[in-house]
């Protein structure tokens, strides 16, 4: 058993060809997932059972099942359903990229909505009471007091979820997508050098994680200036 460095030098540029796809999966599903999460969170805290129950069931299902199963249901399962094949969203499900986006978005949306809810719940009640006593309406309190404080409180957990999402994009390789992991698996199948290829790939992911962590840390410090004495 030996470590073949020429293999790495050969493989890394090829793997990096997939970074664009990895990045697209990450950004598109993070943005869509955040929008979804805000909606679900608002439903969850609305205090109306016909809104909060569906939200809770959605969260329960998507947090309680493996994301790989979710990806397979969307990619292999949905095309089997007549009403999906006949609807306008069919092009989305015919394409593995669309399926990966749908599954990743739905999955991260469930987690992020709970993170956001945690932030909203973490806002000191006394602060909101002060707003009430000053005559601010429910809407004004939510926009000017709850939201900015909740966002700051939720940010560290949200950062962790973005990193989880980056790691989950690797699963897109299981439905034929040639993201970084997909390309690496193809190279391994040809060269049968899993150590060299997979370790190089792991290092690339770690660098990406590190960059994400640093930038989120920066945002956190910026939004948290008011917390420093």
């Amino acid at each position: 058993m030996s470590f073949d460095f020429t293999l790495i030098i050969d493989a890394v540029p090829k793997i990096l060809l997939g970074i664009g796809l990895t990045f697209q999966l990450l950004v598109v599903s993070a943005v869509l997932g955040l929008v979804l999460a805000i909606g679900i969170m608002l439903m969850r805290i609305s205090g109306k059972w016909y809104l909060s129950w569906p939200a809770q069931i959605y969260i329960y299902i998507f947090r309680g099942t493996p994301i790989l199963v979710q990806i397979f249901i969307v990619y292999y399962g949905f095309p089997q359903l007549e009403f999906i094949r006949e609807s306008f969203i069919w092009p989305l499900f015919r394409d593995p990229f669309g399926c990966a986006i749908v599954a990743l978005t739905l999955n991260t949306g469930a987690y992020v909505s709970e993170i956001l809810r945690g932030g909203v719940m973490g806002v000191d009640r006394g602060i909101l009471e002060a707003g009430t006593a000053l005559g601010l309406s429910v809407r004004q309190r939510f926009i000017h007091l709850t939201s900015p404080i909740a966002i700051r409180l939720a940010l560290p957990a949200y950062g962790n979820d973005v990193i989880s999402l980056l790691k989950s994009t690797a699963l897109a390789s299981t439905i034929t997508l040639a993201d970084m992991t997909g390309i690496a698996r193809t190279i391994v199948a040809q060269t049968f050098a899993p150590y060299e290829i997979f370790i190089s790939l792991a290092i690339i992911y770690m660098i990406l994680t590190w960059i994400l962590q640093k930038s989120l840390g920066r945002v956190e410090r910026h939004l948290g200036r008011y917390m420093q004495k």
Binding site: I163, L171, T181, V188, Y195, F198, A202, Y205, T209, W210
Partner: peptide
Amino acid sequence: IVFRGTPEILVILLLYFGSAIA
């Protein structure tokens, strides 16, 4: 740092194929 920064599937593949080769 290594195990929180690497996709799960990659760790599984690496351990499986890697240990088989070793």
